[in-house]
Design a protein around this nucleic acid. Structure first.
Lengths: 235, 235
DNA sequence: CGTTGAGTTGATGGAACTCAAATAGCGTGG
DNA sequence: CCACGCTATTTGAGTTCCATCAACTCAACG
């Protein structure tokens, strides 16, 4: 039960791209504060699991969370990696119970927003409700983007697209997009892209050979984004 | 500018599964009517195109509409087939302009719901707003379901899953799920599943050979749903 | 009948998977 | 700080599955 003031959202480096944070800081006086709680998630631990009651949604401050779909009978499907500045579990808001499991790929810090309080805020402020609907619709495109990335493309294109995608998203939150550390291992990338870790590895090697990137374990350096994009786009 | 009364939703065979129809008929007296317009879309014609202003959403009465994503630079991506009883373009509601194009695969009849009037209704009636959010979130799972169907599965599994999926959705709207006519041609199915039409054809042949289905051109008869599901699930 | 278009079947090559082995990172404890 | 062991990643060789290209069947239609 912390008030918005204690969350100190204005001081957070992600404030300018954090929707709940801005809402909290602009409405705390008028509505008595939106409860935002910070927490740490150790590597490998679940933020929430499939079937859990949906009571909150989440904002990634740092780290990386992988979102798994365990619904469809078979083994877990990796749907999405949530990076700093991004929101999590928005698409579950309509449901009573979550249909995904979220697990920290590396030690992560996140903000938890109580759905009940936020919902009340939406009822009181149509502008916020509209914004939320927009965000939920946008969250729905994540799976569609991934579909674009994998259905018609071969391995090298998928990996190129993945790197460009991660690069762009890191830049949004203010990180360097040219040189970064991939939080996830090759198996996670392979699961995400519908490949095998060996194939992902071979693609990294091939892209290095072409001088488009430099890779050393989890560290990636994009040397030539324009040509990398060409590889991504070329059927 | 037709009133709800003229739409005659209560008489529509899909009424029990049609959310806008029910809303229209239960609210017409209290709110002066929700405008629902019927229209016919000839085969091959677009219901709306990528970039069009988002002013309405749609409900399929009969026929089949394919939804294309033309945003991502390259050739059109087939995202979804909308079947009778299903809603279209919900995920675009947050946006000013549509990011998909919808084309009739066969002559279709649809209902058009003005977004403006419906939005007003949501503002007046929280229960309807909540329901709408739920539906938008559900619409977001379409791409996810497709992802499940294709990322890790090989051709025969994809085709089996596709048939079971279509079968189940037809049953929801009251059609026979065991024996039906596929509105779309092999190329559309192939695009949807990330295969080639020849491969789709071979899979149909193989499933026939195994006595799980019977196929003759567009007519499909599911002979053994349980075993078909086994093929779908078996890695 | 000949034409046309959709669908099926056959033959071949290439991309990615599988299994297996080698190598590089990384944390731990001496 | 270094050696050790464990895991992650890379590399190699053989195999499988699907795309490709081409020929063929079939039904609809004038």
């Amino acid at each position: 039960m912390l008030e918005a003031k204690r969350t100190g959202c204005e001081l957070c480096g992600l404030w300018r791209i954090c929707f709940p944070g801005r809402v909290a800081s602009t409405t705390e006086r008028r509505f008595g504060g939106l409860s935002i709680r910070r927490m740490r998630v150790p590597r490998g631990k679940a933020l929430y699991r499939s079937g859990d009651k949906v009571e909150s949604f989440y904002m990634i401050r740092s780290g990386c969370i992988k979102e798994l779909d365990e619904s469809s009978g078979r083994r877990a499907m990796l749907i999405n990696f949530a990076l700093p500045g991004e929101m999590l579990s928005l698409q579950s808001l309509g449901c009573a119970f979550s249909n995904t499991t979220s697990i920290a790929v590396e030690p992560s810090f996140i903000c938890v927003v109580q759905w009940g309080a936020f919902n009340q805020l939406c009822a009181d402020t149509p502008r916020i409700a509209t914004e939320l609907i927009r965000l939920i619709a946008k969250a729905g495109t994540a799976a569609r983007d991934l579909l674009t990335l994998i259905r018609d493309k071969e391995a090298l294109e998928r990996v190129s697209g993945f790197l460009l995608n991660v690069s762009g998203r890191l830049q949004v939150s203010g990180s360097r997009g040219r040189e970064f550390r991939l939080a996830m291992n090759r198996d996670d990338i392979a699961d995400y892209l519908g490949l095998r870790s060996e194939t992902v590895s071979r693609c990294f090697t091939e892209l290095s050979r072409r001088q488009l990137i430099r890779v050393q374990a989890k560290r990636v350096h994009i040397l030539h984004a324009a040509d990398l994009r060409k590889v991504f786009l070329s059927a």
